[in-house]
Nucleic acid binder design. Sequence first.
DNA 1: TTTTTATATTGACAAATGTAAACATAGATG
DNA 2: CATCTATGTTTACATTTGTCAATATAAAAA
Lengths: 124, 124
Amino acid sequence: MNEDKRLPDSELEVMLELWRHDDAVRTSDILASLDNGWALATLKVLLGRLVERGYIECLRDGRLMSYKAIITEQSYCKRETDGLLRKYFKGSAKSLVAALAMDDTLTQKDLSEISDMLKAKEGE
Amino acid sequence: MNEDKRLPDSELEVMLELWRHDDAVRTSDILASLDNGWALATLKVLLGRLVERGYIECLRDGRLMSYKAIITEQSYCKRETDGLLRKYFKGSAKSLVAALAMDDTLTQKDLSEISDMLKAKEGE
DNA sequence: TTTTTATATTGACAAATGTAAACATAGATG
DNA sequence: CATCTATGTTTACATTTGTCAATATAAAAA
């Protein structure tokens, strides 16, 4: 059904907006939220392409329409994360985290917080 | 000079191969290593595009040529990682790591090892 | 009900990407 | 030397992506 290829940037922008809502969103609201200079027609084309790809569905409400994500952010995000891991870190999450730590994107404090969180999860 | 846009998949494949070497690599060696079904001409076109983008340089050795990365894997990888962080984790590395931990891509053991590594770094 | 205003739909087109055939040529081989 | 072979170079073309203008229409406003 849906492919595992990465979305083009413009379509991803639309998805990111849809993912901010649980319910379906009106075309005009999407356009307003994105607030990049897109013409309405541009957005509609992208929405159409996303429907074709099976990423979103289109709901009619009279003559207006709204759109709702089918592919979850979670799953797409995981695909992207795994891809990054595979490509640049030989698939090792540890390497990625180490890199983040080395360039101070991630602090010691962050790490210990996560560690605590993990312990809590184990204990559950 | 060079843009901060992501490379197309095909060109990235070539870069990933070049990054595996410190020195310049012969066209034929690249082709052999990639070992996807590309025609030589295909590879050459991609190499040409990468040269234009300023990602690699072309060295002549007689009539043969070899190519060498100019943009480092480090810098490109950082761009990509930051992009992922920004797009799916509100820029928070901690969120990313938490997600990795939650889906067991990252273990408690990994975390403590990284933590140790960090402490060592601080002490230096 | 006439006009205006949103929205939707379609067709178009340039640029980027993926992929290779065709042609040219310098070395290797017979 | 004549031919073969690997490599380089050029041109080409289908597809995908980015972006709209133009057009049609329903709903709202005058």
